[in-house]
């Protein structure tokens, strides 16, 4: 029964969106970080989605192709007494743009909800199909 594929397709989309949400959470958590895990300032990360063609014509799931680090310039503030200040008194912060990340978060959450709805519809259709001819 071909409709079972919908769970695979929407499931892959949901897990990709969840990963995107994870990355957004990581970015927002580190928005004010002065230094990241490697001792340098934290670079904002972005997921890149890719369509994953399925077996049936016209169907495609989603996968996370790669997670890219942003090359945007770091935010610098002048704070000579900060422990992480450089020789000229500047502190380097992460290059996370919180507004951008919030928009990203809302978009991911909407896409997630859409796919859940798709799966619910498919499920109810299939349950009705099971009762065919009764």
């Amino acid at each position: 029964m071909s409709m079972f594929n919908i769970f695979g397709i929407s499931g892959s989309a949901i897990s990709s969106q969840a990963q995107r949400l994870n990355v957004v959470a990581s970015n927002l958590a580190n928005a004010d970080a002065v230094a990241g895990p490697d001792g340098k300032a934290y670079k904002s990360r972005q997921v890149l989605f890719q369509a994953l063609p399925g077996t049936d014509p016209g169907t495609a799931g989603v996968k996370v192709q790669t997670i890219k680090e942003s090359d945007a310039p770091f935010r610098k503030t002048h704070d000579p007494y900060h422990p992480s200040a450089d020789a000229e008194g500047y502190v380097t912060h992460s290059n996370v743009n919180p507004v951008e990340e919030m928009v990203n978060m809302i978009s991911a959450s909407r896409s997630y909800q859409n796919n859940v709805e798709v799966m619910n519809t498919a499920k109810s259709l299939m349950l009705k199909t099971l009762q065919m001819g009764q």
Binding site: M3, I6, A13, Q50, A51, V62
Partner: peptide
């Protein structure tokens, strides 16, 4: 109808994939 439902589900799943072209039956 079941096949079309699948294609439409794929379109909705790929709403954020760059370069994806929506299909229909």
């Amino acid at each position: 109808r079941a096949a079309r439902q699948q294609v439409l589900a794929s379109n909705i799943a790929n709403v954020d994939s760059p370069g994806y072209v929506a299909q229909d039956i």
